[in-house]
Nucleic acid binder design. Structure first.
Lengths: 138, 138
DNA sequence: GATTCAAATGCAACAATGATGCAAACTTAG
DNA sequence: CTAAGTTTGCATCATTGTTGCATTTGAATC
């Protein structure tokens, strides 16, 4: 799967900004911040263009935002279009990486009487395997 | 429990802005937006003062932020200081109220190997009892 | 390959949110 | 009441994101 394919599937024009963003996101399995992405782009697009590209990709559910502690915003590419139920996100308190936990099943949550559930957002904060090893060795 | 008591417990000086914010938050069992609170304050404090008061109250864990859809920010007062495990939040897609679901037990989530959990943030979006009734009657 | 038209881009301007330094006002302990 | 340390309000600045508009680009058609 390449960036062009993703754009074609969604009937979006192939522009260098969109293509660049998708390429970067496809090449990693982590969520990236806006700046991570901007810095990796080969050309320095105008702020407006960049935001508009993001908006378009979000609207087409190609990428999704994740907010941690109401501050750090990370973006991740959506692996499957059939991912209706959503998925949990993991944030490492030490190295600050963010990962989509596609494999973690979303649990049923018991709501008080009268409440009806549509969607759940779950963010798990903790220590990632890499940081855990580091801390155990010392 | 009055605003002054809350401030005393946390060793914070009693200032009218802090007192006003806490009083408003104590008088409701919903999460409020920054504007909800500002509009209910008797005096129009400077933007800086307002932000700084919020920051102080957040730092002392008197109130906490909740973000919905990366846009709507609501604040709620922390009922108990011993609320270490956190709690889930409910957002009504129809009337946009936000409530802290203190009664909903935080479930254990099965993480992939090597990941260690510290905290979980859970936001449940759906329909609140009031809106559910409205929609059933029509 | 040239033509065409809608869509995307870059720029200027603007709005909202939030931070900082500083003088004045306030809180509270003595 | 007074003194010392906080907090406030103001001016200013930075960041983030939006909008309108002229220009450029993508891609469908010839």
């Amino acid at each position: 799967m390449k960036a062009i394919d993703v754009l074609n599937i969604h009937n979006l024009k192939r522009t260098s900004c969109r293509e660049g963003i998708i390429d970067i996101m496809l090449s990693t399995n982590q969520a990236l911040s806006e700046n991570d992405i901007r810095n990796q782009l080969s050309y320095n697009f105008d702020r407006t263009t960049f935001y508009r590209s993001f908006k378009t990709l979000e609207e087409h559910k190609i990428i999704h935002k994740i907010i941690i502690d109401n501050q750090i915003i990370k973006y991740a590419i959506d692996k499957s279009i059939t991912d209706k139920k959503g998925h949990a996100h993991f944030f490492c308190n030490h190295c600050h990486i963010v990962k989509c936990l596609d494999s973690v099943p979303m649990q049923e949550i018991q709501l008080p009487d009268g409440y009806a559930e549509d969607e759940i957002d779950i963010l798990i904060k903790g220590t990632c395997p890499t940081c855990k090893k580091k801390y155990c060795n010392h």
